[in-house]
Computed example of a mutant assay.
Amino acid sequence: MPYATTADECRIAYQVRGDGQPLVLLAGQSNNHTWWDPILEDFERYRLITLDWRGTGASDKPDEVYSTRGFAADVVAVLDAMGLDRAHVYGTSMGGRVAQWLAIDYAERVQALVLGCTSPGAKHGYERSQEIRKALAADQSQRVLLELMYTPAWLAQNPGPYYVLGDTTMPSYAKGRHLVASDKHDAWDGLPSIQAPTLVLHGSDDIFSPAANAELLAERIPNARAERIHGARHAYFHEFREVASPLVLAFLDAQDRA
């Protein structure tokens, strides 16, 4: 497995599949690259780049402050290790928060941007309710998380395995570091500087990261548009892949032709 080394000497494990235009896929909080496994084949026309966030998977797990802005620098270290000047970027959940910083701090590295089920940050965005936070902290948190990710009908027909419930190999301190990094995300002031064409996707029934964040981001980012996927919850990209993946592909195709 290849590794990129960051400026602070952290090794970031990354994975590369296929050929074509590079597309970086960024996973959610406390998850590694397997977050994307169920839908990788949807994007097989691209050279797909995934990674394990620091604190997850095969990457180093330093016990220090993490941030979404710092995670963006880790992604750039991967691009540098691969010798890539630019790539399309598709980030979901916390990965979407990181993708915002990529497009703000490293504008020249992002050709097109897709932000899924994400938020500009708690200070200006719409956050999950205290009831949800309490439920996630309770003993039945895994079931609560599943029901936030998927519809009951889909869960009844799909007993697993599930790829969006977190990296079970993470040390507890790393989980805490991820939680704080995501909670402290605030890219609001930088969003108007994003130059990359941007598509914002969100499940219409997402209350984990409330759906109203989609329009909020699209209004704040120049040359952006928002699409809600009807009936979908947080993991819209998986359960509603037959709708979501074609939307992303059509958007990226349009940028490749531009």
Rank of each mutant, 00 (worst) to 15 (best):
M1P: 15
P2I: 11
T5S: 09
T6P: 06
A7P: 02
E9G: 06
E9P: 09
E9D: 14
A13L: 05
Y14R: 07
Y14H: 12
Q15P: 00
R17C: 00
R17W: 02
Q21F: 09
P22I: 04
L23C: 03
L26R: 02
A27L: 01
A27Q: 14
S30W: 01
W35I: 01
D37V: 10
D37I: 04
P38W: 00
P38T: 06
E41W: 01
D42W: 14
F43D: 04
R45I: 03
L51W: 11
D52Y: 13
G57V: 03
S59V: 11
S59Q: 13
S67F: 09
F71T: 00
A72W: 07
D74T: 03
V75F: 13
V76E: 05
M82N: 06
G83R: 15
L84I: 08
D85K: 15
V89Y: 10
G91C: 09
T92W: 01
G95L: 07
A99E: 08
A103F: 09
I104Q: 05
A112C: 10
L115R: 06
T118E: 01
K123N: 12
G125N: 06
Y126Q: 07
S129Y: 00
I132E: 01
I132S: 01
A135N: 00
L136V: 01
A137P: 02
A137Q: 12
Q142N: 03
R143N: 04
E147T: 02
P152D: 04
A153Q: 14
A153M: 05
L155D: 01
L155C: 02
P159D: 03
L165T: 08
T168K: 09
P171L: 11
S172G: 03
G176W: 11
R177I: 02
H178W: 12
L179P: 02
A181W: 05
K184I: 00
K184R: 13
A187P: 13
P192H: 14
S193N: 15
I194L: 14
A196H: 09
T198F: 12
L199K: 07
V200C: 08
L201K: 08
G203H: 06
D205A: 15
D206Q: 07
A211R: 06
A212Y: 02
E215S: 13
E215H: 14
E219G: 15
R220M: 12
N223L: 14
A224C: 10
E227V: 14
R233W: 05
A235G: 04
E239C: 05
S245D: 05
S245P: 02
V248T: 13
A250R: 15
A250C: 03
F251R: 11
L252Y: 07
D256T: 11
R257C: 10
